[in-house]
């Protein structure tokens, strides 16, 4: 065990410089609901902790030309209370609000949830279904990365040394759009998803014109299930189309057996959650 240095810079540039200077020993601290637990458990021992909660850009929610930009360190509680974001992206907001308990919501952020890179992270399937783009800044400047490209495996991301996820951009919504996120856990709240499913739909005159489907906890990373989206697009969300989408979800699953759920169970449930999430997203799309 070693002493960790703590810094709380006021700008992304400073934070990136600190991370780049830490030689791989730096860790970003947002809410700390994963990092501090892992440190106490002896799983990680960072040499430098860079607290990003004092960086304005990372803790703000703003709307630009219909798109929403959400700072990576914005807490679940702030997102919960944001009426505009909730109206546009109820599935994303619900997914973020499922992380931990009320107390954890006061700290935890979607950026932390993404960068912790758990295959079961609740916010990630919803963000992937939403088509969220992450703004990433590193020593070589900024780049825009689709959220699904950030996780690289359990506990691993594709971020390069010194890179920080600054914010997410949720695209402007066409009329008739709706999203939803559902997960299964063994008890009613405060647990890690056994399966999670995010669905984002756009409907026009009763026909699905665009769809994105993402699954969590059924593979080493969150999956964007294009086969499921294909089955839905062009359909009137009839039973046949939805069953085909559910079959695509089951086929995409590459889960593990563990004490939270078996392979057979997770695979079956992926299809069930898809059907239920589509129903909720479609209902929301109709009323938007």
């Amino acid at each position: 065990m070693m002493e960790a240095q703590y810094r709380a810079p006021g700008s992304v540039d400073e934070a990136v410089a600190l991370m780049a200077g830490a030689g791989g020993k730096g860790r970003v601290l947002a809410g700390g609901t994963d990092l501090l637990v892992q440190m106490r458990a002896g799983m990680v021992a960072p040499g430098l902790i860079v607290d990003v909660k004092r960086i304005a850009e990372m803790t703000a929610i703003s709307q630009i030309a219909g798109a929403w930009r959400v700072g990576a360190a914005v807490t679940g509680a702030e997102i919960h209370d944001h009426a505009g974001l909730k109206k546009a992206w109820p599935g994303v907001v619900e997914a973020i609000n499922l992380i931990g308990s009320k107390q954890v919501q006061g700290r935890a952020s979607a950026g932390g949830n993404l960068c912790n890179a758990s295959p079961a992270a609740d916010s990630v399937p919803a963000l992937v279904a939403a088509g969220a783009i992450a703004t990433v800044q590193g020593p070589n400047g900024r780049r825009e990365v689709p959220v699904e490209q950030i996780p690289a495996g359990p506990g691993k991301t594709s971020l390069k040394p010194g890179e920080i996820v600054v914010s997410f951009t949720l695209p402007a919504r066409p009329a008739g759009s709706g999203d939803a996120y559902l997960r299964l856990i063994p008890r009613t709240e405060m647990d890690i998803a056994v399966v999670g499913c995010g669905v984002n739909l756009t409907m026009k005159d009763g026909t699905c014109t665009a769809a994105r489907v993402a699954l969590g906890a059924v593979a080493p990373t969150v999956l964007l299930v294009e086969g499921a989206a294909k089955a839905l697009v062009g359909s009137k969300l009839d039973d046949k189309a939805i069953e085909a989408a559910a079959a695509a979800c089951r086929a995409a699953c590459k889960p593990i057996d563990d004490k939270r759920g078996t392979i057979v169970y997770r695979t079956k449930i992926a299809g069930v959650l898809l059907k239920r999430a589509v129903a909720i997203a479609a209902e929301r799309a109709r009323s938007n």
């Binding site: 008890r187 009613t188 709240e189 405060m190 647990d191 890690i192 004490k259």
Partner: peptide
């Protein structure tokens, strides 16, 4: 309390792993 059948250790030694009913249950 799940024991690893090969190592003889408890699997998951936190209240995140050992599920007890919560208020919502």
């Amino acid at each position: 309390t799940v024991m690893d059948p090969h190592l003889g250790r408890v699997v998951g030694t936190s209240l995140a792993d050992y599920l007890i009913p919560v208020h919502a249950d």
